[in-house]
């Protein structure tokens, strides 16, 4: 059971993120939703690479013993890097939307209809 807790956390994070994305009208909250989903996916990747009682996958000066998988960690790092770029872009767009519309409410920032 204890080893399933990360997966439950993943599910909770992703569902929370989707909830924020779908039901929240504030643009910043939508961005937060995306970050939550991203954290969930990253946590999932990291959890995949974990092995019981393992050490970090660093070869030099390692104390010995089994190591956790390095590949998921590399994937997660890449994903985090990309995430930073996406979030930065989103936030800057939100700033510009605020400048143009004077509000962050998704219902009112809708000039593009149909």
């Amino acid at each position: 059971m204890i080893y399933n807790i990360p997966y439950l956390a993943v599910a909770a994070l992703i569902l929370l993120g989707l909830y924020a994305l779908i039901f929240k009208r504030n643009l910043i909250k939508m961005v937060i939703g995306i970050t939550l989903i991203e954290s969930g996916v990253n946590l999932f990747l990291i959890t995949l690479g974990y092995r019981k009682e393992s050490i970090a996958p660093i070869y030099t000066s390692s104390p010995g013993g089994i190591m956790s998988f390095p590949v998921p960690q590399a994937l997660t790092l890449t994903s985090i890097v990309i995430g930073v770029a996406v979030i930065a872009l989103m936030l800057s767009l939100v700033m510009h939307i605020y400048r143009h519309y004077g509000t962050l409410d998704a219902r009112e920032t809708r000039r593009l209809k149909e």
């Binding site: 143009h100 920032t109 809708r110 000039r111």
Partner: peptide
Amino acid sequence: GESVEAGFKYIVISAMGALFVLFAVALLY
């Protein structure tokens, strides 16, 4: 304003889509 709004819509959709892809990749991995 329209351009910024379209850009935001696009990035939300594609960020979500890309995270779905990553999740699927993780499932397969």
